[in-house]
């Protein structure tokens, strides 16, 4: 549903301030969204001063430093710290991205860090992804075939394999989905760029024999056609993918089978 202001209990208030240790020379401020579900209070924006000389170059390095040495209650997801697991997605300096791939040096002034937009916040920078994962499951992301299992692998020529380039690299971080206004307003029905790119990944796979059913399931004014080509998704993707193109390709296939 369209909302232009945050509900009263979600408005962000000023929070605590943590100064850098005396003698720190290369200090940068990090303004971080904090929310503790146990505290029944509004979220706050805490300020942490971090000495950049003590840490690595990425925003995730600063978050780890804060958690280790300043405030162990700071909560966020991370695993691979190299852009592969997709778990450290958050809104940094106004753009959804992966904290482990975002250089601190790219941000002028204080580094503002919020959870991904328009999702329910569980704690601090951790959002509830249940619905997105359920939408992912709903497109049945596995190979569907009628041909009986061959003795060896199912074959694909190099040219056929190329069709998956730009799709297989997606790490399901949901930076794109949560940057898409259409997904904000209608995410309960619209599948959004992340899931549609995944749907395209299976529709385009020449080994899959379920294209028709897959397109049937996508042909819906909300599931697919809520994409209004706003292109926020393309700007957000930290892996440099183009979900809008994947969506356009799906629409072209819809057209091909009708015209």
């Amino acid at each position: 549903m369209v909302q232009f202001v945050l509900p009263r209990n979600s408005r962000v208030k000023p929070g605590k301030s943590h100064k850098a240790p005396a003698g720190a020379k290369n200090v940068k401020e990090f303004h971080i969204y904090r929310y503790d579900p146990d505290e029944k209070k509004n979220p706050t924006l805490d300020i942490f001063e971090v000495d950049l000389d003590e840490i690595g170059p990425m925003v995730l390095d600063a978050l780890l430093k804060i958690k280790d040495d300043i405030d162990p209650t700071l909560t966020f997801r991370r695993s691979c710290r190299e852009g592969i697991c997709g778990s450290c997605a958050m809104c940094i300096d106004g753009i959804n991205t992966l904290a482990c791939l975002k250089p601190i040096a790219d941000v002028k002034g204080p580094v503002k860090i919020y959870p991904l937009p328009h999702l329910e916040v569980i704690k601090d920078l951790v959002c509830d992804l249940d619905h997105l994962y359920a939408q992912y499951a709903s497109i049945e992301p596995w190979m569907k075939t009628k041909t009986p299992m061959p003795k060896q692998e199912r074959l694909q020529s190099p040219e056929e394999r190329e069709k998956l380039d730009g799709l297989w690299e997606c790490v399901l971080c949901f930076c794109c989905a949560t940057s898409c206004p259409s997904y904000w307003w209608n995410g309960h029905r619209y599948l959004g760029p992340s899931i549609l790119l995944q749907a395209a990944r299976w529709v385009m796979d020449t080994r899959d024999e379920g294209q028709g059913e897959r397109l049937d399931d996508l042909e819906d004014p909300f599931k697919l056609y809520r994409c209004h080509t706003i292109l926020n998704c393309v700007k957000a993707c930290p892996r440099g993918l183009n979900p809008a193109k994947a969506i356009a390709d799906l629409k072209v296939l819809m057209m091909e089978r009708i015209l």
Partner: peptide
Amino acid sequence: RSALGRARGIGSAKDGFHHWW
């Protein structure tokens, strides 16, 4: 209701192309 049940909902309308076209 399960998250998947909610996401699958009442299914696709099998329509949408014409409006777009």
